[in-house]
Design a protein around this nucleic acid. Structure first.
Length: 98
DNA sequence: GGGCTGACTGACG
DNA sequence: ACGTCAGCCAGCC
């Protein structure tokens, strides 16, 4: 199942992001966002995991808070702007190619 | 098959 | 904007 998740994440273009719910919907799990998060724990090498954010346009990584600054830095290096509350504008960066 | 877990989500106060 | 609560679903004992 996670193979599908990785496949979707790998398709996200530079400078764009997708939400967990979006990925879940793409693989047929309308309300299986948690499953996506669970699959992401394995973080295969070469996967643009930093382009996956929660429905609020923020960074979730509850189990690895140390990687949050890293993810944010990676996204900013791709031209994605964060507001003062640490969220990005999904209406502007969300990838609709699923 | 039963129960627990979680990088989630949407609704409420 | 922030903390809490209850659904949700695949995997792993």
């Amino acid at each position: 199942m996670f193979a599908r998740v990785y496949e979707i994440v790998a398709q996200v273009p530079y400078g764009h992001v997708v939400t967990y719910g979006q990925i879940a919907r793409a693989i047929g799990l309308e309300r299986g966002a948690r499953v996506v998060g669970w699959a992401m724990r394995y973080c295969p090498e070469g996967l643009p995991w930093h382009r996956v954010v929660n429905a609020q346009g923020g960074i979730s990584l509850n189990n690895a808070p140390e990687t949050v600054p890293l993810q944010r830095a990676l996204l900013e290096s791709e031209g994605i702007h964060f507001d003062r509350t640490g969220h990005l504008d999904l209406s502007q960066y969300r990838w609709e190619g699923i």
